Amino acid sequence: MAVVVPFEKETASIEAMVRATKADMERVNAMILSRTGSEVTMIPEVANHLISSGGKRLRPMLTLATAALAGYHGDGHVKLAAAVEFMHTATLLHDDVVDESDMRRGKPAARMVWGNEASVLVGDFLLGQAFKMMVEVGSMRALDILATAAAVIAEGEVAQLAAAKNTATTEDEYLTVIKGKTAELFAAACEVGPVIADRPKAEQAAARAYGMNLGIAFQLVDDALDYGGKAQKLGKNVGDDFREGKITLPVLLAFRRGTEQERLFWKRTLVESTIEDGDLETAIGLMTKHSALADTVERARHYGDKANDALALFPDGAMKHALMEAVAFCIARAH
């Protein structure tokens, strides 16, 4: 059983951004391939398993797009975009080990092929390469933004571990977790564009606010899709969050709005990890009953609107339109 979450703008896509950043993304992809090289053959094997597995490269595209929006002329944005993708890939490698995930982007997770140790260590290698590229750009401010993001992402992941199986988690605490583990990299990826273009602080802050709110919307939709999506769209198994005991917004809303008997169900499955056949279907049914999935998507739309509002500071044009389309895509990507 799966409930398809109703999304608006079914045709929303990131094609406008793909077209607008195509030339620079080709340079980014070439740099990614060149920087995964190593005499230790397992390193490029593991890295390329994930890097070449069809990810949209949304975060590096955002770096290129915001640099163009800010009128940047130079090559630094290409290295920073590649660094952002390496940071993201390293996070995925580490996450799959922590979450004991079997699948990533529709294929076996790297840990299932090479083991947990290799996945963690290759993730560390990619982080090292990311920092090398940041240093080469020569912007201390950009380096500070991305280095801070790396620390915040790790904090967010640890905070999620602490919140796991805790049904007393509040919505504010949940938002703090997803700001750290997901939205921070979106924010940093967008902020460094105007920074290396030496734009005013207000534009740097606006780009960061766009990325932060886009990242929150992105994660909210992901959390809804774990219960109301399809495996091929998710790139992982539907219900993974449920099986791992993750307390996400759909769970919080269903738990808070449910009866005492329903809360006992959530405590048995998520807190005590006693999951029986049919429990995922029951969880989806309770979320549907209490509008938890639809309301999670509605929250995502709210943050999407905030992301678009942050762009008001920038002049109208093709790149600004592409960034707004990216917001619509993130919210409508269940289709």
Results as ranks from 00 to 15, higher is better:
105 R>E: 09
280 L>V: 08
227 Y>R: 02
165 K>L: 04
39 E>Y: 13
155 E>L: 11
53 S>T: 11
163 A>I: 03
188 A>T: 14
36 T>A: 10
222 D>R: 04
17 M>V: 10
92 L>H: 11
152 V>Y: 08
29 N>C: 06
167 T>H: 06
271 V>Y: 02
7 F>A: 01
182 T>P: 02
266 W>H: 00
160 Q>W: 07
42 M>K: 03
173 E>P: 03
105 R>N: 10
52 S>G: 15
135 V>S: 11
103 M>F: 14
279 D>L: 05
16 A>L: 15
187 A>N: 06
108 P>H: 09
178 I>A: 05
250 P>M: 06
263 R>C: 04
278 G>R: 09
34 S>P: 00
157 E>P: 02
183 A>D: 08
148 T>L: 05
217 A>N: 04
71 G>K: 15
163 A>F: 08
96 D>I: 10
190 C>E: 07
173 E>S: 08
309 D>A: 15
63 T>W: 06
323 L>D: 08
5 V>Y: 01
200 P>R: 14
20 A>V: 03
211 G>N: 11
8 E>F: 02
216 I>M: 11
111 R>P: 03
52 S>A: 14
158 V>H: 06
234 L>Y: 07
85 E>A: 03
331 I>L: 01
121 L>I: 09
201 K>L: 15
250 P>K: 05
234 L>Q: 05
70 A>E: 04
201 K>W: 10
334 A>C: 09
129 Q>K: 15
26 E>G: 13
240 D>R: 02
213 N>K: 12
66 T>H: 11
114 W>Q: 07
79 K>I: 00
36 T>N: 14
246 K>P: 01
292 A>T: 05
75 D>F: 08
147 A>F: 12
196 I>D: 07
333 R>D: 01
31 M>S: 12
251 V>S: 08
245 G>W: 02
160 Q>P: 05
173 E>Y: 03
204 Q>D: 06
183 A>N: 11
309 D>K: 14
334 A>N: 15
135 V>Y: 11
246 K>A: 00
192 V>Q: 10
161 L>C: 14
93 L>P: 03
199 R>K: 15
195 V>N: 00
249 L>G: 04
332 A>E: 02
185 L>R: 08
249 L>D: 03
2 A>F: 03
313 L>W: 05
265 F>V: 12
184 E>A: 13
